[in-house]
Amino acid sequence: MSRQLRNRLFLLVSSGAVLLCTAILLFLFSVITWNGINALSPSFLLTASRSFGAEGGIFYQILGSLLMVLTAALICLPLALGAAIYKSEYLKNARLQKASAILIYGLNGIPSVIFGIFGLILFVNILNTGISWFVGAIILAIMMLPTVVLATFQAMNSIPEIYRESARALGLNHWQVVTGVLLPQGFAGAITGLLLGLARAIGETAPIMFIATAFSGIEIPHALNEPVTALPTHILALAQQATDPRALQNAWGASFVLIGLVTLFSITGLISRTKFKTVSQR
């Protein structure tokens, strides 16, 4: 096979792969939009669900999901910054560096249902917290942690050494270099990672269904140890249990809103990453 033919074949295969991925994504979006957009209305977004989801809207599900993921972000951010700073600035041993990378990637690869089971055993069974939205936020924070740590670490690592040296040459000690040079740029990376982590976390069902959510009868939680209703578990319940076509229509509508939130977080994350790259490449 000539070199030219091999090049063309490779181009064909890689273009085909891109087209296939795009087509699947577009198909998914189209189906959800086609079926879900009819359910969408101000009252659907702003009222509580009734009759086991067949009537009313998804207001408290949106609120519950946002409450959990935003709390998860608040828990995750300081932990991720600390871990990334330690990995970037203080962990100099090559073996430990490698081990930490394996652990972080390993944590990222754990199936989400395992997090749910872990939360159920540790918090609900052993610590007796009961079904709690805050426990759900903690579990989601742990799930988001690797994404945020890696994004922050990569942001800090991409800062040219000359910035650190210039700061040290001005008489800044190690901690001042960390806070004055690394954190401002690393923070932008952390925010990017956080938004991408949020995009993943808000759509997760398995980690929260055992420990944090209830299907109905819940509005705004008044304590840390109360459950919430959330979009993914609401969709799951509607799709599995509802025989009423109106409930199914609402499931499509809720899916459309969920996809919209995921897309919003993802696009904001990608925009912030592009903006951050521009800053670090100056």
Binding site: I162, Y163, S166, A169, L170
Partner: peptide, 12 residues
Amino acid sequence: VGMVFQKPCVFP
């Protein structure tokens, strides 16, 4: 003992 480097390095 201050130092100026080969390549100008301004902070963002």
